[in-house]
Design a protein around this nucleic acid. Structure first.
Lengths: 160, 160
DNA sequence: GCGGAACTGTTATGTTATAACATGATCCAT
DNA sequence: ATGGATCATGTTATAACATAACAGTTCCGC
């Protein structure tokens, strides 16, 4: 969030990928292991700020000479989701690296651009509060929040 | 929203189904027609306040001796979505009747109970505002909003 | 080295959704 | 009333997304 992401997603990925990986390694300590294939899937997910589908990950693995089958990828993705290292975007059936720090409840909101396909992760406190209030008013106990706003991002609007 | 919906969803459905249908007829005037099969799919969707999947609708049609194929149902569902007569719940790949009045932008939020499977439709102004603000801060133009909170509803919490 | 736990491989299948093309119904303008 | 445009439906096939079930492997503590 502190670093601009261009419409083409061209920024220093090596930096954010490696920071994602070190966060991942840090989180994997007691009985939880970041194995080679989980690590590779995490890298692939982080290779852009765009959501990527499970079968696209399969294709990447195949292209690298590591042919895999769906369960392999889905198992890795589920592990990464459990560890809060990635998010699943419900509206796209796709996955994206989690940009948030470890202990913030893994709650996020997404702005998904139809044009450049970037997905910007937010964690807006006011929005979070409004979500909590809405649920509280109904006496509803929330386990999981999905907030995905689709449209056109600022850069693409300028470009148009 | 004015009428209580129990955890079992037992309330006067004939009333809400027929009011949904008359809303639908009213909306279908100029070049837009509520055909028999679209109408039947709308009725099926409205037969509970629970989200229903496309293939469950297919099964119902088959049980009624109106065997249909997936495109038939998806075409009806897409029509009903365009007319804002139903919503699609992205987290469930399922559909539910739209309880909102005609001209409010078809923006809604859902509280989805994992236990009784009811989905309560909200249109909370504060939440809507918070969503707008979050997008505006990023200069993002929103086309479509998906807000789905999953958890346990008040009734199921009491019952537990 | 043995047993258990975690991880991976493999086959098959389940679930959700659409492409592509053919046919039928409706309307209304000439 | 016919021709043709438009909208709706039927039909076949397949694409896209996801998991069940079971077999094999690796790793680690005892």
């Amino acid at each position: 969030m502190s670093e601009p992401i261009t419409p083409t997603g061209q920024h220093d990925h090596t930096r954010c990928v490696s920071s994602a990986l070190s966060a991942a390694e840090a989180r994997c300590i007691n009985g939880v292991t970041l194995t080679k294939s989980r690590r590779r899937v995490l890298e692939i997910v982080w290779e852009s700020h765009r959501p990527i589908g499970a079968y696209d990950i399969l294709d990447r693995l195949a292209a690298e000479g590591q042919p895999a089958k769906p369960p392999t990828v889905y198992r890795a993705l589920n592990f990464l989701l459990e560890q809060c290292l990635i998010h699943r975007l419900e509206t796209l059936n796709a996955f994206i690296g989690c940009g948030a720090s470890e202990a913030d409840g893994h709650t996020a909101q997404f702005l998904i651009c139809r044009d450049c396909n970037l997905a910007q992760e937010l964690d807006d406190p006011a929005l979070r509060q409004a979500l909590n209030d809405a649920a509280d008013q109904s006496g509803f106990h929330v386990d999981k929040r999905v907030v995905e706003l689709s449209g056109i991002c600022a850069d693409c609007r300028k470009a148009a």
